[in-house]
Computed example of a mutant assay.
Amino acid sequence: MSKITVILADDHTLVRKGIKAMLESDEEIAVVAEAENGLQALEKSREFHPALLVMDIRMPLMTGLEACGLLPDYAPGTKVLILSMHDSEDYVLQSLKAGAWGYLLKDIDRNEFIKALKQVHAGNKYFSGAVSNILANQLLRTPGTARAEEPKEDPYGLTRREKEILRLVINGNQNKQIAESLGKSVRTVETHRFNIMKKLGVNNAVDMVNKVVKEQLV
Rank of each mutant, 00 (worst) to 15 (best):
N204Y: 06
P151K: 00
V31K: 00
L105A: 03
E190F: 00
N37L: 01
F127G: 05
A148L: 15
L166G: 06
L182R: 05
L39I: 04
Q94R: 13
P50W: 01
H192G: 07
G38N: 04
E215T: 09
T145Q: 10
Q138C: 14
A98N: 13
K106R: 14
A35P: 00
G123F: 06
A21N: 04
Q119Y: 05
V213E: 01
G102T: 11
V213C: 04
L14E: 11
L70R: 15
T159Q: 09
M197V: 12
L217P: 02
N204I: 11
Q119N: 12
V218I: 15
Q94H: 12
G129Y: 10
L71R: 11
K214W: 10
A116C: 02
M59T: 11
A205P: 05
M55A: 10
V212C: 06
Q138D: 14
I29N: 01
V186T: 14
A122R: 11
E27H: 04
A9P: 02
S84N: 09
N124H: 08
C68H: 03
S181D: 08
E153M: 07
G102S: 13
V131F: 07
L96N: 00
E112N: 05
D107Y: 03
G157I: 07
L71Q: 07
R187N: 10
S88H: 01
M85F: 08
V212Y: 02
Y126F: 15
R187V: 14
